[in-house]
Design a protein around this nucleic acid. Sequence first.
DNA 1: GCAATAATAATGTACATACATTTAATGTAC
DNA 2: GTACATTAAATGTATGTACATTATTATTGC
Lengths: 152, 152
Amino acid sequence: MPHMKIEEEIKQSVFKTEYQKAYINVVFTAGYLEQAQAALFKPFGITLPQYNILRILRGQHPKPATISMLIERMLDKTSNASRIVDRLEAKELVTRKQCPADRRTVDVMITEKGLDLLKQMDGLEGGKGTGIMNLTEEEATQLNSLLDKIRS
Amino acid sequence: MPHMKIEEEIKQSVFKTEYQKAYINVVFTAGYLEQAQAALFKPFGITLPQYNILRILRGQHPKPATISMLIERMLDKTSNASRIVDRLEAKELVTRKQCPADRRTVDVMITEKGLDLLKQMDGLEGGKGTGIMNLTEEEATQLNSLLDKIRS
DNA sequence: GCAATAATAATGTACATACATTTAATGTAC
DNA sequence: GTACATTAAATGTATGTACATTATTATTGC
C-alpha cells in the first residue's frame, strides 16, 4: 500500500513543474481515498454512489425525492441516478413509484432496511480511516482553501 | 460550470469537520480536473488512461513494453491494461505481438501514428487549462506536501 | 384547444474500474 | 521429467461515468 511521495508512487522520474505534480497528485490522492473508502464499504454491500444516494434520501425521509433532485445533490452531477436507484431498489433499500401529481417524475424513498443499513454505516462518514486524518485541522483548512482556489 | 466553494457545489448544508470537508473536496476537485482534461482530450479521440499508456510507450520507444510493465507504471495500478491496449490497437496507435523469449508476455509498441498523435497532444500535459494554474507556484508546492501527507 | 417546446426519467453504447476466474507458459521441487 | 506452483495476459461480471437518444408527460404560445 502507498506510503510514498507522488514521484515514487507512479515511478515517473521528475515532474516538469509543481503544477504538473500538483495536478497528478490531486487525481492520484482522490483515487487513493476512494479506494480506501471502497474497502470500508465493501462489508456493507453498497458502493459510494449508492451510499451517497441513500444519505440524500435519509435527509428527505419520510418525504420522497425525485430522480432530478438526486442528480442535483449528487457529487457527480452527470452520473446516472436512474441506474443507481435501480440497484438500490433491487436490494430493497429504496422504493420507487410514479408520482401522481406529476406523472413524469418518480417518488424515490428509503426503506426501513435502507435506514438500518445507514445506521450501521454511520461512523464511516467523511473519510475517517482513509488517511485524511493524517492532517492537522489547520492543514485540512489550508487544503480546503487551495482546492477551492483550483476550482475558482 | 463550477466556480464555488465546496459547500455550494454540492448543496450540503454544513460539513461536520474540516476533515470531512477536505475529504470530499479532494475527491470532488479530482473529478473537476479530470472532467476538464477529458474535454481537452476529446478532439483527439483518446481517453486519459489511453493517453497515459501511450506516454509510457513513448518513453520506452523503440523498445517494447509488456502489459505488466504498463500496469506497474500506470497511475491506477489495478486498472485493466489489456483492454485499454485493445482499444489503442483498434485505433492503430500501438502494435501487440507475442514475445518470442517469454511466450506468456506480449510486446506492446507505439506506432508512428501513435507518436504523431502524442506530438499533437504535447502541451495538454500536466493539467494546463484545467484550473491547476490558478495556484501560485508556492501554493502548488504547499498542496503537494499536504496531499503527500494524506497518503503517508 | 392544439401544436410546439421543455422537462423528466429511462435506455443504449462506449469506456473504465474492481474483482474473480481462466488459459497458457514458465519455473521449481522432487 | 513430471507434478505443482507461479506468472502473464486475457476474459467475465458487476458497477459506474459520459454522452446521446427516446418515451412520456407538462407547459407554453398562439
